[in-house]
Design a protein around this nucleic acid. Sequence first.
DNA 1: CACCACCCATGACACGTGTCACCGCCCGTC
DNA 2: GACGGGCGGTGACACGTGTCATGGGTGGTG
Lengths: 201, 201
Amino acid sequence: MIRVLLADDENLVRSAFAALLGLEDDLEVVAQASSGAEALAMARAHTPDVAVLDLQMPDRDGISVAGELTTLLPGCGLVIVTGHGRPGHLKRALEAGVRGFLPKTVSAAVLSDVVRTVHRGGRYVDPELAAEAISAGDSPLTPREADVLELAAGGAPVEEIAVRAHLSPGTVRNHLSAASAKLGAPNRHAAVDTARRHGWI
Amino acid sequence: MIRVLLADDENLVRSAFAALLGLEDDLEVVAQASSGAEALAMARAHTPDVAVLDLQMPDRDGISVAGELTTLLPGCGLVIVTGHGRPGHLKRALEAGVRGFLPKTVSAAVLSDVVRTVHRGGRYVDPELAAEAISAGDSPLTPREADVLELAAGGAPVEEIAVRAHLSPGTVRNHLSAASAKLGAPNRHAAVDTARRHGWI
DNA sequence: CACCACCCATGACACGTGTCACCGCCCGTC
DNA sequence: GACGGGCGGTGACACGTGTCATGGGTGGTG
């Protein structure tokens, strides 16, 4: 019997996944969590064999939860499930020790199979996502450029970004200009869009 | 026995919902679709009692599908399920004849209850969403302003928006300026953000 | 050590943008 | 018919932004 921990902030989806996994004879959902913090607490309490984590959760990223779980429960298999799979996320997830990564668009049979595969010590990455990740490659942005671009995401004027990043407005514009150029975007707003699509911010 | 149609582009979620509803004795999932067009075709073929539609689908909005279904199958109950519930969507959905509207954050028991309620001719709207919708009110934007703002969403320069909307650049700027003022935003990018959050575009 | 990449900053210029005043057109309402 | 509101357009001005050249500081690498 494989003991599974489920974490997803959307209660309806999480319960539905539980129902789906419950149909399998060799799987048992032993704990559920609706946030990253709760997931860690549940993991400590129930020591599951495999943790299935949603990428987007209100308090913290599923990937950061995964990173902590690798040290907390080294034997626990980690699977990330996500709505919109961005290449950058996949890379970060694998670095965090995640061994299963799949978008919610895959068919139902895949999920339970992946849980079994990961439990056996194997890996599974959605082929389409893997292809995208390889073609997209690493982020061309320097850490500071990514920071500034992140702050520019809400459509804030340069002056405000400068204050929030403790930089001079001129430097902010330089970083944004460099980022836009690297991303082939005509302006920072399109650059934000591109960076988001690739999971670089 | 209540015959249910399920439509959601995320196969995993849709199958999971099917498993969840399948646990109920009085519910039967008779058809599934992964796009708006497919949902309509399935509805024609299976004439379900209740249709459960995801708000976001690749080809078309769940609300527009609902609007078409009201004329196609007047007796069919309509339920919209959504990840991020925006007030504007709720209003548009109700106008389209939808009688159930709930975010994916609700607990599992709610979904099957709502299906039953809607089948009986009743209504269900998530209380939190309803409160937001009332406080948010109607869109202050004129149709044209909403159009132009929509085109500005990708971060495109004014010149490009003008071409795509068949307008002069000056007019585009006037519309954007008016929209930003109405939304209390310092620039169009923040205005896009605000309008999106309210479901006005 | 020299070199290079990154970081922060300044100043200057050209261009995109936000704002305003003002124009005409159409359409529905009082 | 007068009025008001949405729509499309023009022109002008101020400001925000994108871009470039330039320079200084840091830390790691050959």
